[in-house]
Design a protein around this nucleic acid. Sequence first.
DNA 1: CTAATGACATACGAAGCGTACGTCAATGGC
DNA 2: GCCATTGACGTACGCTTCGTATGTCATTAG
Lengths: 201, 201
Amino acid sequence: MVTTTRAAKMAETRAKLIAAGRKAFAEKGYSGASMDDLTADVGLTRGALYHNFGDKKGLMAAVVDEIDTVMATRAHDAGQKAGGGWKGLLAEGAAYIEMALQPEVQRIVLLDGPAVLGDPSQWPSQNRCLQATIATLQDLAAEKAIKPVDIEAIARLLNGVALNAALWVAASETPEATLPKVVAAFECLASGVLITPESRI
Amino acid sequence: MVTTTRAAKMAETRAKLIAAGRKAFAEKGYSGASMDDLTADVGLTRGALYHNFGDKKGLMAAVVDEIDTVMATRAHDAGQKAGGGWKGLLAEGAAYIEMALQPEVQRIVLLDGPAVLGDPSQWPSQNRCLQATIATLQDLAAEKAIKPVDIEAIARLLNGVALNAALWVAASETPEATLPKVVAAFECLASGVLITPESRI
DNA sequence: CTAATGACATACGAAGCGTACGTCAATGGC
DNA sequence: GCCATTGACGTACGCTTCGTATGTCATTAG
């Protein structure tokens, strides 16, 4: 017997709404997405939405958090797989850039997200990603591998570069051709924090 | 006698609407700004607006273009005043960052602009700013002062860094304290394109 | 078995955008 | 100097959307 508890049912409702939100926000943009339509798509009404998320912005926050969390962990994994340190930092940035090729990511996280929810550096998920970058930079600082600059500032700007690079690639006519160029440029700028010029790519 | 030609009158109407748009978009955000209200503020109705700008987005485009054009020329001037070349590039970025401290710039150009009008690198005004950066980089490339990377990619990312740096400063609790840190970080990253490590700040 | 809580649906009001139409002044031809 | 036409702008209407207030039904507690 499958005991369907109410908590599980509500979680399922939330999941359905978030999935519908992802789809609608990605396809029509935030303001273009109709709450009536996206709830009806999963057999619900706005009643469920306002009960679970408070308002339209609440659903957007949940959607952004879900996507952004996946992005942060995946970028972090890429950095670990590259062995951490300087190589890991570059891998992290490259992974971040590649993920932003997805239209869903571009539209929801990069374009509408900041406009609706405010500065991305204030998002919980972005903070997680930022903390990872900061940690990597602190390791490099301990090895005296980077210049004595403000770690948080560098981390924020590096994330910003990756984000912006992703935007450009996504808007490009030929994303596949642009990607390697922008990754190289990213690594070039990032190398600015290194003390030893030999460490450049 | 003051001959008020119709072209001049229409230009005045456009100017009034753009001014009202700047104010409304800055204070309430794009979606929060009511066309009824902002037109009434300057003694007009939505009729004038739809006649001159087509739709709400059209007014937004005009407002963004006006602000962004001023930003581009001012940044360019700062670069020229610094003597062009490497110093000019840094001055350009710093000027861009400082301008973004204005709430109007932050809200309209940095947050709502991309969401409403799409990727900033496609805007005419942004292209002007980008061309200036590209020109400066090409000068440096001719002097063999920078690494052999894709100029356009570097230019776009540098602009992106400045933009992102500005966003952070604007969202910061203490903008005045954050500003020097991000400017230093910006110059640090920018120095990544230089060949000679001595040229760093 | 009954009362209460919670999850969701339904109904309602208000606001906003875009468009179709109306109006009045200005211009161009004769 | 008169009239038709154009253009700039105002007015009125419909449609969509959001948020809330209220209703309903199942589940749980006592």
